[in-house]
Design a protein around this nucleic acid. Structure first.
Length: 602
RNA sequence: GGGGUCGUAGUUAAGCCUGGUUAUAACGCCGGCCUGUCACGCCGGAGGCCGCGAGUUCAAUUCUCGUCGACCCCGCCA
């Protein structure tokens, strides 16, 4: 499949008379020798040799060396002395083969150069706050002058790739019979899930819109309208604290389908992700179809619902070995329903200091402690080994398959907590001891999530995905074990990062009512918050389900970047401010008066 | 809400632990020289509220506290 965006570089697309130039800098090759070209772009670097002046002229396609020589034009050469970095020029000149020994193999245009016969300064440029070819500039400075930051070729490449990704997404989904929609940005606040950004309504004093956390309810309504396949490249807003991979506004590829089950949604969307992967990475994904793992297995073996499979290092449950232990820590934990879990680090030599650092790290992660054991020719060495029976030691050695030189790390805590801690400790060890093969790319579907999870904060069960997710099997004869109900939900994980997730929804009123009952949401409350959806379910709602992918996150991962800000044109800082525009800011008192809003100070 | 790292010429950093001379370097900038450079080179020069505020001290870029800002993480968030 070829895409149109490449053809922008094809000169046949120029509109005669409207363009200042007739050729793009980065496209000139030795085949163009002897042509007279008119270029337009920015002066990237200038090398003034007195008698001869070289400059690199850059436009969106790349750069080409231009030469000002008094032998071609005395006037141009003289005026060229005043040219400075980032001046905007229109130059006309002849393409010539570079002399022997002066070709630059590092440049696509390195075999030729353009001898300038005349030029025009379209605009001058102040001295920039940072050099465009400087690799390491403080991110705050880059964000303050984001338009300059994005003038850098590396950044341009990212946003050209981003544009390509939009096109691939639309192309793929349209070819699969999806229709593209837009849904409101000014909508109703939904109390479940993340904190809403809120927008006051002038026409309705004291009332507020919310910006959507996702188009969830609208896309379900579109299924009820009968469009059957919906997608949107949708902006979403969540007023929560930020991270390297989280922004307050971000873009999702939002998808919903009717008359489908889990497998349909997963296979269509696996196709989309493969198309994006191929377009951005220029190669096929290593394993197709993507492997799958249940949530239970992921938590058990990797201590995470988004395991990074680029390294092995799985977690082993040792609880059964220590059921009758005399070792106080394990004994107490197990008696109160906790578990003992271990990972084994093989083939690395750890000093006593390394081990101490590991213990500190575990505590930093929030663990009560970390026990290490080293296997040598004599047996297991550890500060706690004297508390363990020979039986326990030999069982551990055989269950974990440890050999001389290996180190066992053990934690014990409440079941959910020890899994989570071990999962994060596993990532730390993987990173620290270089176990992660960064050349690998590992996709993984996680399926069979629990429908509900207990919220310590709210002291009740809440929907793990969202309250419209259907259970995997109909809730017949529910026995009160909330944790055991599985959801018809799925997440796509890539190298330990969640790219997206979705579910098959409840499409019958009674199933949705049952869900609200489980969540302990009363009828009135449900109808107040989601009444319009419940009503729609009663009017011939088809079975439906969907998924949403974090578009920015996909780009970040597939382009090998470590910050989501690098793939967003004008991102916000960790405190949600825009260093370029100065948002958020105070507004004029009149604006607040119109809205009948008074601000409080503490 | 909590933990951590950082803030010094336009930029990127050193100096700070161990307080005291003119605050150092590279790149950039300005001037001069240079016809084969491509991170051009050579010579010369300018450029600092050491984030901000308080405290300790004879003396603070340096120590202490606060504050503002940037980044990373936990909580939070799909």
């Amino acid at each position: 499949m070829t895409y149109q965006w490449f053809t922008i570089y094809n000169s046949t697309l120029f509109l005669k008379g409207l363009n200042v130039r007739d050729t793009y800098c980065g496209t000139i090759r030795k085949e163009d020798v002897d042509k007279t070209v008119t270029l337009a772009g920015w002066v990237f670097r200038r090398r003034d040799h007195g008698g001869l002046i070289f400059a690199d002229l850059r436009d969106v396609t790349g750069l080409v060396q231009i030469v000002f020589s008094p032998e071609i034009s005395k006037e141009a050469h003289e005026r060229a002395g005043d040219i400075r970095s980032e001046y905007v020029l229109k130059v006309t000149g002849k393409v010539l083969r570079r002399p022997d020994e002066t070709e630059n193999p590092n440049l696509p245009t390195g075999q030729i150069e353009v001898y300038v016969s005349s030029f025009e300064v379209l605009n001058t440029c102040k001295v920039l706050p940072f050099q465009l070819d400087d690799e390491e500039i403080n991110e705050a400075t880059r964000l303050r002058y984001r338009y300059l930051d994005m003038r850098r070729p590396d950044m341009q490449k990212i946003f050209i790739e981003r544009s390509k990704a939009y096109a691939v997404t639309r192309d793929y989904l349209l070819s699969k019979g999806f229709y593209e929609f837009e849904t409101p940005l000014l909508t109703k606040s939904t109390p479940e899930g993340a904190r809403d950004f809120v927008v006051p309504s002038r026409l309705n004093t004291g009332m507020f819109y919310a910006l959507p956390q996702s188009p969830q309810l609208f896309k379900q309504l579109l299924m009820m309208s009968g469009f059957e396949r919906y997608f949107q490249i949708a902006r979403c807003f969540r007023d929560e604290d930020l991270r390297a991979d989280r922004q307050p506004e971000f873009t999702q590829i939002d998808i919903e389908m009717s008359f489908v089950g889990r497998e349909d949604v997963m296979s269509v969307n696996e196709g989309l992700i493969i198309a994006l992967y191929e377009a951005l990475k220029g190669k096929k994904p290593p394993e197709v179809p993507f492997p799958r793992m249940t949530f239970a297995e992921a938590m058990e073996k990797y201590g995470s619902d988004k395991p990074d499979l680029r390294f092995d290092l799985t977690i082993t449950d040792l609880t059964s070995i220590f059921l009758k232990t005399e070792f106080g820590v394990f004994k107490k934990t197990i008696e109160s329903g906790g578990l003992v879990k271990a990972i084994v680090l093989k083939g690395k030599t750890l000093s006593r200091k390394d081990l101490d650092v590991s213990v500190d790290m575990a505590k930093e992660l929030g663990a009560g402690g970390l026990i290490w054991m080293r296997k040598d020719a004599e047996g297991l060495q550890s500060p706690i080994v004297k508390f363990l029976s020979d039986e326990e030691k030999s069982q551990m050695i055989s269950l974990l398959g440890v050999e001389a030189g290996d180190v066992i790390f053990i934690m014990s805590d409440k079941p959910g907590r020890v899994s989570d801690l071990m999962g994060r400790f596993r990532l730390y060890i993987g990173e620290k001891y270089d176990l992660i093969d960064k050349s690998l790319d590992k996709f993984l579907w996680i399926i069979d999530f629990p429908l509900l999870e207990y919220s310590e904060e709210e002291k009740r069960y809440v929907a793990r995905h969202h309250p419209f997710t259907s259970p995997k099997e109909k809730l017949v004869g529910f026995d009160g074990n909330y944790d055991a109900i599985l959801a018809n939900a799925y997440d796509l994980v890539f190298n330990g990062v969640e790219l997206g997730g979705g579910s098959i929804r409840n499409h019958r009123t009674e199933d949705q009512a049952e869900m609200f009952r489980l969540l302990n949401i009363k009828d009135e409350e449900a109808s107040d918050k989601f009444g319009f959806l419940l009503e729609a379910l009663e009017m011939g709602a088809p079975p439906h389900g969907g998924i949403a992918f974090g578009f920015d996150r996909i780009l970040m991962m597939f382009l090998g970047l470590s910050s989501i800000r690098d793939v967003i044109a004008f991102p916000k800082t960790q405190k949600g401010s825009c260093l370029l525009t100065g948002a958020p800011s105070r507004v004029a008192p009149r604006q607040l008066t119109e809205l009948k809003i008074r601000t409080m100070t503490d």
